[in-house]
């Protein structure tokens, strides 16, 4: 039994590359990667949602709307240099939007609504409102969309940051694997020289190291990812009100599952490739 076990491990790597250090470090990094993944997904969802909300960055309400007043407001707005676009909202669409609150009663007067798109979101909409009110008395400017647009930009940068964190975590993982592999090489230097002398190809030796290191890294990643799932589920629960108006979103289905499932294989690949490169470079000192 012992012989069978050893025969597949002529470098004794099970002992040279063992212990909990490498899997533990990779587990911690998988946890960070999972958090970054969830952060990236959450930021993307927020940005997406807020971007939609900001479609009409500024809306103008015209009380006592008749076609002439709306037309006058449109002309005035389109003449302003900071306004990129001004569109009157179709009264029927407006009525459809309001029906849940007002019912199908055509008698209630509905204000005319104009959607504005500004050339620059930093323009103060209050100034537009003041000038418009001179031409069309009673016109009101509503600018919540601008804030939403700024929040969406913030969410986009958070998403980019999360991706940068993901790349950094991968690089640190590769560095950790390289250090662990070098420790294994130092521990098995004699055995490697014996195998090399017996005619083992670089690929034989590097492959043994790479498989071992890859498996350790993948194992660590499984543990780290599994540990991240409850924490992420909790966070998603808390973020629920901002993300899903439906409110029925299950916190577990909201996790970035494809990314999480990919973490262990990616950890295996990072470990495998790093070990291959490290061992092959080391072997080049032998003739």
């Amino acid at each position: 039994m012992a012989r069978r076990r050893h025969s597949r491990d002529p470098l004794g790597l099970r002992r040279a590359l063992s212990g909990l250090l490498l899997p533990g470090l990779v587990a911690a990094m998988a946890l960070l990667a999972a958090l970054a993944l969830a952060g990236a997904q959450g930021a993307a969802a927020l940005a997406e949602r807020w971007q939609r909300g900001a479609a009409a960055a500024v809306t103008v309400q015209i009380p006592d709307a008749d076609a002439a007043r709306v037309q006058r407001a449109l002309v005035t707005l389109r003449a302003m240099p900071e306004v990129a676009d001004a569109q009157a909202m179709d009264p029927q669409r407006l009525a459809a939007l309001l029906r849940p609150w007002l019912g199908a009663a055509p008698s209630i007067p509905v204000p005319g609504v104009i959607e504005l798109r500004l050339r620059d979101s930093r323009v103060d909409p209050v100034l537009i409102g003041d000038r418009l009110a001179q031409a069309v008395p009673g016109a009101l400017v509503e600018a919540h969309g601008l804030w939403v647009q700024r929040l969406a930009a913030l969410a986009r940068s958070l998403q980019a940051l999360a991706l940068v964190v993901l790349v950094l975590v991968g690089l640190v993982a590769a560095a950790v694997v390289a250090v662990a592999t070098r420790a294994g090489l130092a521990a098995r230097r004699d055995a490697i020289e014996v195998l090399h002398g017996l005619g083992a190809r670089d690929g034989d030796i590097a492959g043994r190291f790479a498989r071992r290191v890859g498996l350790l890294a993948a194992g660590g990643a499984v543990v780290g990812t599994a540990a991240a799932v409850p924490a992420l589920a909790l966070l998603i629960d808390l973020a629920g009100p901002w993300l899903g108006s439906a409110g029925a979103m299950d916190s577990l289905t909201g996790l970035p599952w494809p990314g999480l499932v990919a973490l262990p294989p990616v950890a295996f690949l990072v470990g495998w490739a790093t070990a291959q490169a490290t061992v092959r470079r080391w072997l080049h000192r032998l003739p």
């Binding site: 012989r3 050893h6 014996v194 002398g197 017996l198 083992a200 670089d202």
Partner: peptide, 28 residues
């Protein structure tokens, strides 16, 4: 460099200090 390994496999070497792998049985 890659051409050396196949030739090494056709050479047998006996060292003064044996160079056996201590964690492998004589058979292995």
């Amino acid at each position: 460099r890659a051409a050396l390994a196949p030739v090494r496999r056709r050479i047998g070497v006996v060292f003064q200090d044996f160079r056996l792998l201590p964690y492998l049985s004589a058979f292995d």
